[in-house]
Design a protein around this nucleic acid. Structure first.
Lengths: 210, 210
DNA sequence: CCCTGACTACCACTTTTGTGGTATAACTGA
DNA sequence: TCAGTTATACCACAAAAGTGGTAGTCAGGG
């Protein structure tokens, strides 16, 4: 067997039972090899550069530096390594922070073992494996609100504002008067109950009106 | 067999071969039932409310109204129906527009048949099935840029601005002077080469600095 | 046929932002 | 240790945004 072509996997997880369980599972799967297992980021930091893993399975609730905060550090030392979050947490904020910090996938711990192995494969192929609920949350974060109080024109103008254009420029591009743009903006502000551009953009984004 | 408990699937796809292929595949899978197949949104609109599908497989490149534009209309008549996009297109803009318009999942046409069936099941369970590349694009849309030219404080202030707070309020909350906030903003503008709040927020968002 | 909502437009006035300087203390890396 | 970066702070003036009115036109629905 060509061990050189095996996918090298490192695991950072504080619960020894879980850690060794995953290590056993992956280490005994053809085509995969465990190159390191660590109970914390601090421990991992000492050796992981030498391990040079292709994929890291990373827990979020770790003693010391959290998995979320470890992510950018790991990406810095190993820019080409794919990092898969493996956790019990399904809070939106945590998920988005993990993805924002460079996670290549996000799995919950109820994921069946064979799915974990296939997720590792998938991430090596350029995919982005996610548990079903995670994928759902991620997808719904894109969904617009179709019950917007804004009219078509108002939405259009607010979108222009959100791209940073001045009122003058918006007026020019829509072939309407500056005063008209001001009127629309006034109405938008009333409807959204805000008093500034930034407030309006935030309110509209939060409510997915734009 | 209790046909009442079958998952009802409708297909909107202009290519007859593909359409009938999917219909055959799904119709012959236990637990699934085809309740309608249509070559366009216009055709579907006439009967789909009566079909009352649980899941719609929707193509994006359709004669007449496109799949993307059909999405909100379908969601309006069938608010509880899950809509899966099934297409050859993998352009980011299209994907995000589809998800923004209420798609529950996004599959490419090279998806193997058994995966399509499992995606239908997954979407019924509250998941968000996506092809690997799609998931990757979606995930990387969240990733922050770690090579930001902004300092920690500048990033912090810009984030506050992006939430719509006035300079005065930012100053109060950070326990610094209004003039200091103005100085930071000035520096942010220089670094990003912009001349307004909205421009800065847009530039920072586009480059994933915040 | 009239009313309403949407889009358009103008005026006057206040407040907030943006620009262009200068400057000092603290920290940080070569 | 010494230069560069970061964070802090002040001033004055110009430009843009925000507020509070009023009002005409036009299309669509009751």
């Amino acid at each position: 067997m060509k061990r050189d072509l095996d996918i090298k996997v490192a695991i950072i997880e504080d619960d020894e039972t879980i850690r060794e369980g995953y290590a056993f599972l992956i280490g005994n799967t053809t085509g995969y090899k465990i190159c390191g297992t660590y109970p914390s980021y601090e421990e991992a930091a000492k050796h992981i550069a030498q391990d040079d893993p292709d994929v890291i399975l990373l827990d979020v609730e770790l003693p010391g530096i959290s998995g979320i905060d470890a992510l950018p550090k790991l990406k810095k030392t190993l820019p080409d390594t794919h990092i898969l979050i493996l956790t019990v947490y399904e809070q939106e904020l945590l998920i988005f922070r993990a993805l924002g910090n460079g996670a290549a996938g996000y799995l919950t711990k109820n994921t069946p073992p064979e799915k974990i192995v296939s997720a590792i494969h998938e991430v090596m192929e350029g995919g982005g494996p996610m548990s079903a609920n995670i994928a759902r949350m991620v997808i719904s974060s894109f969904k617009r609100n179709d019950a917007s109080p804004l009219t078509r024109r108002e939405t259009e103008i607010l979108e222009q504002i959100a791209t940073g254009k001045s009122r003058k420029r918006i007026a020019d591009e829509l072939y309407i008067d500056l005063e008209t743009v001001k009127s629309h903006i006034k109405n938008i502000y009333h409807k959204l109950d805000v008093h500034s551009k930034a407030d309006a953009i935030k309110a509209a984004r939060d409510n997915k009106f734009i």
